[in-house]
């Protein structure tokens, strides 16, 4: 049963990925004007366009282009930037364009995860252990306020207060890649802070709700009535049942973070993958857009898959069938 559930999930994950790739492919194909148009720009004559198209393989039927593209993707060949993010980058392999940007994005999300997860888990747990306490009310109130504000507002607000008014941090997070130490930290501070705030308020709320739900279940009351010490109730009876849902919550929130990253990188002009993608859309560099979109979607689907696995694996009925 367990194995079947895991296999089914995996299959669904792969299928979703394929569907998404089709959508991305179609989505980018309907954008007006193809690469040939862009490269040739003003100088385009019908003949030169046709010639370039056949050179790039753009004149073949869509489904063939799709499979070619998918095959290249699967073998790690992300293709060649056809327009590039500027005249200088035309013809650069996409993987070279993406690598530094991906590193930047991963660095930022890693910092966010390292701060947000322990922080929100412990605060959420504390709030659940002392429901109705001043701490709990403070946490509930703040997080409720924060999750109802969209990311870009949080970001704008932080810029206003910390950069414009107090002049503590730079308002943009542009880095060239050579910054180190304090300078790098300062540049990263605002985007990271924005994401930490957005992600932790969700994780906190959901951790609190999950643990409270477990703590109010009859088997916890039974443990209290059996004279089981509080520490053991939390660590053995409650946490055992809450771990699955909590991992699920974390993975889901990291998945939501993917869209947060897009917004935050744009707002702060942080040279990450999302910024690259947004720029690529502006220059109609379709292969680059496709590659970036695939990476984002794959991450999203992978995290959702992890979330699903967590809830399947934590279900004792599936782990110990009759």
């Amino acid at each position: 049963m367990l194995m079947a559930a895991v296999l089914r999930r995996t299959a669904v994950g792969i299928l979703t990925m394929l569907l998404v790739s089709i959508l991305i492919f179609i989505g980018t194909s309907v954008l007006p004007g193809d690469v040939a148009n862009i490269i040739l720009g003003q100088m385009a004559t019908p003949e030169s366009l046709a010639e370039l198209r056949s050179k790039l393989g753009l004149d073949r039927p869509a489904y063939i282009r799709y499979f070619m593209w998918l095959g290249d993707m699967a073998t790690g060949d992300l293709g060649i930037s056809k327009a590039g993010s500027g005249a200088a980058t035309i013809g650069t392999p996409i993987s070279e364009l993406i690598a530094p940007r991906l590193t930047n994005t991963l660095r930022m999300t890693a910092i966010v995860a390292i701060i947000a997860i322990p922080l929100s888990l412990s605060l959420g747990l504390l709030a659940a252990m002392y429901p109705g306490s001043r701490l709990d009310r403070a946490i509930t109130f703040t997080t409720l306020g924060l999750i109802s504000v969209p990311e870009f507002l949080v970001a704008t607000f932080l810029v206003l207060v910390l950069a414009v008014h107090m002049d503590l941090l730079p308002a943009t997070a542009y880095i060239s890649g050579r910054e180190t130490g304090l300078k790098l930290l300062k540049a990263l501070a605002l985007p990271t802070l924005t994401l930490v705030i957005v992600a932790s308020s969700q994780i906190m709320r959901m951790t609190r709700a999950t643990v409270l739900n477990v703590l109010s279940s009859p088997y916890i009351e039974m443990a209290i009535l059996k004279g089981v010490p509080r520490k053991r109730i939390i660590l053995r009876h409650a946490l055992f049942n809450a771990v699955g849902p909590i991992v699920n919550v974390i993975a889901l929130n990291l998945a939501y973070l993917v869209s947060g990253v897009v917004i935050v990188e744009t707002v702060f002009s942080y040279p990450g993958l999302a910024k690259l993608m947004v720029d690529a859309v502006q220059t109609r560099d379709l292969p680059l857009v496709q590659a970036c979109a695939m990476i984002f979607c794959a991450t999203y689907i992978l995290l959702i898959f992890i979330a699903d696995m967590a809830s399947i694996l934590s279900n004792p009925r599936l782990r110990h069938p009759k």
């Binding site: 279940s217 009859p218 088997y219 009351e221 039974m222 443990a223 009535l225 059996k226 053995r236 009876h237 055992f240 049942n241 934590s314 004792p316 009925r317």
Partner: peptide, 14 residues
């Protein structure tokens, strides 16, 4: 103490 619903009073994970 013996509760009304044994199904709910046993911890499913232990």
């Amino acid at each position: 103490y013996l509760a009304q619903s044994a199904a709910a009073s046993f911890n499913p994970a232990l």
